[in-house]
Computed example of a mutant assay.
Amino acid sequence: MANLLIAHGGAPTAVINASLYGAVMEAKRFPGIEHIYAAVYGSAGILNEQFTDLAQVPEEELEKLLRTPGSAIGTSRTHLEPEDYAAMAQILKKHDIRYVLFTGGNGSMDTCGHLRAACGNDVFVAGIPKTIDNDISVIDHAPGYGSAANFIVQCVSEIAQDVRSLPIHVSIIETMGRNAGWITAAAALARRAEGDAPDIICLPEVPFDEERFLARVRELHDKKGGVVVVVSEGLKNADGSTVAPPLFEEGRARYDGDVGTYLARLIIEKLSIKARSEKPGIWGRACAQAQSSVDREEAVRMGALAARAVLSGKSGVMAGLMRCSTDPYICEDVLVPIEQVMLEERLMPKEFISDDGFDVTDAFCEWCRPLLGSAPAQYADFKHSVNMEGVRLH
């Protein structure tokens, strides 16, 4: 008999626990597995030998994982040194753990690769993709992104209705996504007709030009009155610096100032137009109400695939999704060599960004739409007037 260990790394998502569910349920199918351990609080939990046995959890409790946001077993951003991997290898041996699954983004896949090297052939290690930022290379998309995209579509759609109701100001909505603009881009799917908000989309992949931005805001405000702008938290200047200067920076950890607040103030000061900013923040990755049904189902599949891989003798791989078709939407389950996704960051490709840099293309919208799980809500709109002869005035 041998044991399996599952750990979460990095920020949680609305479906990270669905992947946990998939991995646990798959592992329970293998009679040679005695304990299905979860590391409590990720890599730190492994080093501290803080484990809980999910094989003992009743199935009705495990099913709650499918709609539980955050991480039910905790996660961490623990910085690991070479000696930590050697220590982990000894801890795994001590607890008869021959199979390890890490759920996370490209940083966690880096951990997977180093742990596999430290353990050699004694332990089988695989990764389960997870990130709201959708910045893991090679694969089509990662579980976690679809729900985050669905959340921002709902936010922008509802804020746009408010702005249309009283069209007198500029509303700046700041999304998560420091280097990759996938979440910001998804806001385009809030549109139902030509001319609908968002009116401007600013991605971190496109250098910010203050003069062009203010000119576009002025033009739109003169035309519409109310303007909705969606910006990435990591919006950058041409020299690579963030538009909102960072408040703290150390290694890979960086805390930027609120770019939404910065731009709202810029509009007020430079254009004398009323502006305000909105920042949903971590709600965008924790909102179970916005969980995409497609995202949840794919998260379960990725957890099960990774568990099946290690338990059948494969190691040094990450479960992944590769798109076969968009209409109808079909994604194939694949295993990717871990070396191809260790700290490799995937940004928005040029074909998904509009020529003027203030929007996304139809190609992006077609690619993203199936991941939301359902179409945005339709709203009533009677904000037009007619004269007594029934002629529409505007």
Rank of each mutant, 00 (worst) to 15 (best):
Ala2His: 12
Val15Gly: 10
Ser108Met: 08
Ile282Pro: 02
Gly22Pro: 03
Ala2Glu: 08
Asn17Ile: 03
Ala275Trp: 04
Asp135Pro: 14
Val156Arg: 07
Ser108Phe: 00
Ile267Ser: 06
Cys365Thr: 14
Arg216Leu: 14
Asn121Tyr: 08
Leu54Thr: 09
Ser165Thr: 14
Val310Asp: 03
Gln291Met: 15
Val156Thr: 12
Ala215Ile: 07
Leu189Val: 04
Gly257Glu: 10
Gly226Met: 00
Thr261Leu: 15
Arg301Val: 09
Pro246Tyr: 10
Gln291Trp: 02
Arg98Ser: 02
Arg392Phe: 10
Leu235Thr: 05
Tyr21Val: 03
Tyr262Leu: 13
Gly45Asp: 09
Arg218Cys: 09
Phe51Leu: 04
Asp362Gly: 08
Ala307Arg: 02
Ala44Val: 08
Arg29Cys: 12
Glu269Thr: 11
Thr242Ala: 10
Leu371Ile: 05
Ala148Leu: 11
Cys112Leu: 07
Gly144Val: 03
Lys314Ile: 04
Ala244Ser: 09
Ser171Gln: 11
Ser293Arg: 08
Cys324Ile: 13
Leu203Lys: 11
Asp239Lys: 13
Glu366Asn: 10
Leu20Cys: 04
Thr261Cys: 11
Asn134Val: 04
Ala126Thr: 02
Gly181Trp: 07
Gly260His: 03
Pro129Gly: 06
Ile152Asn: 06
Tyr379Gln: 14
Asp199Tyr: 06
Ala180Lys: 10
Ile128Gly: 03
Glu233His: 02
Thr242Leu: 10
